Computed example of a mutant assay.
Amino acid sequence: MDSKFKQIVLDNSDIIVQKWLDEIDTLKTSNYSSSITEELLESTNREFVNIIFSSIKNEGDTKQLKEFSEKLINLGWQLSYITDGLQVFRRVTINFILEQSDQIDTEYISELLQSVDKWVEPVIRQLVNEYSGNWENIISLQQMALQELSAPLIPVMDNITVMPLVGTVDTERAKLIMENLLDGTIKHNSEVVLIDITGVPVVDTMVAHHIIQAADAVRLVGATCILVGIRPEIAQTIVNLGIDLSKFPTKSSLRKGFIKALELTNRQIVDLHPKENIIEKIIDPLGGES
């Protein structure tokens, strides 16, 4: 910013700040401030305008801009808060300088507009870039966290693990399923792996292909894969598509699949009180009762 305009802004900072606060207050109905308290909005506005003035005094210092953009993301505010706020500040500053000047001509106005734009535009770009970069980083971390939860392999008994699948299985998720299955099968020393597709809404050719690949991979590392959660509509779809699932067992429910897994690991469920039908126990011929 031109030194003479810069000095006017700094000398009258209190007046300009109040004018900015009054005008920005009219934007409270916007999405970025409709769900927050008056106190938080006021404190954030104060912080915002302090950062704007700090950018005049300390040109090139981006630390405050970065921290402020991170705060806005954590608050869940939209990017429009930044752009609207800076545009309002540009307008308020220009109007105030014009009101204080006796020299109102085309050359002066042009010089003023260019000077303010030269100062405000880099601040807008810096804040938008910091906001966008932080947002992309948060999205990336969230995606990684969701991926870790999207294909869990859960050990339920010695040598028996379950992978419950919920939602759509796409290519990226299928890759993660494959990796988790193989790593988990070896880590837990699994003899039987149950893949539960009860929560998978659609099983088409691609989904079935991924599941078959996963089952084959499990078989190659010495374990048996059982596909459970075959609903009637899923079974009909599989038949109509001509998908061959004969290489590994399938069951309609997780309970039936678990009973089959016990059989494959030489265990069975025995009713201790057949008449009362109250208590059941699992007999493991190698390890006793459990």
Rank of each mutant, 00 (worst) to 15 (best):
S54E: 12
S33R: 02
S33Y: 05
K28Q: 09
E38F: 01
L112H: 11
S33A: 12
I16S: 04
S35M: 07
L98D: 03
E99M: 08
E38H: 01
L72G: 11
D102T: 11
T29L: 13
E47R: 06
Q64P: 02
L41V: 05
S35G: 07
T37G: 15
Q100L: 10
L75D: 00
D105I: 00
N58G: 02
K57Q: 11
K4M: 11
I109H: 01
R91Y: 13
V92P: 04
S33G: 04
S13L: 08
L112T: 10
R46E: 11
N45H: 08
I109Q: 03
L79H: 05
E39V: 08
R46F: 06
N45G: 13
L75P: 01
S101V: 03
K71I: 09
I94H: 05
I109E: 08
L41F: 07
N31M: 10
L113N: 15
I73W: 00
S35Y: 01
Q7T: 12
Q7A: 07
I109G: 01
T83M: 02
L10N: 12
N74I: 12
I97G: 03
N74V: 13
E111D: 12
E111N: 10
T93N: 01
I109C: 04
T26C: 01
I97S: 02
D105R: 07
E39S: 10
S13G: 05
R90E: 07
S69R: 02
I73A: 04
E107N: 11
I104K: 08
I73M: 06
D22R: 05
K19D: 05
I16R: 01
N50K: 15
G85S: 10
I82E: 05
Y32G: 14
I56T: 09
F89V: 04
R91L: 13
S43T: 13
S55L: 04
I109M: 08
E107D: 11
R91D: 13
R90M: 12
V17S: 11
T44S: 05
S80H: 03
N74D: 14
D105V: 00
Q114P: 00
L10S: 11
T62P: 00
L98R: 15
E70T: 06
T29P: 00
S13Y: 01
L75H: 00
S80P: 00
D105C: 04
F53E: 05
T106C: 07
E59K: 13
S33K: 01
F53N: 05
T83R: 01
S34Y: 14
D25G: 01
D14A: 14
N74Y: 11
L21H: 07
L72R: 07
Q64F: 04
S34T: 15
K6T: 09
Q7S: 11
Y108R: 04
D102Y: 15
S54F: 07
R90W: 07
Q18A: 15
V92Q: 03
S13C: 09
E59H: 08
L40V: 06
L72M: 10
S30F: 13
V49W: 00
L40R: 13
Q87V: 08
D61I: 02
D102P: 00
L112D: 09
K71H: 08
D11A: 10
L10Q: 08
L27W: 13
D22F: 07
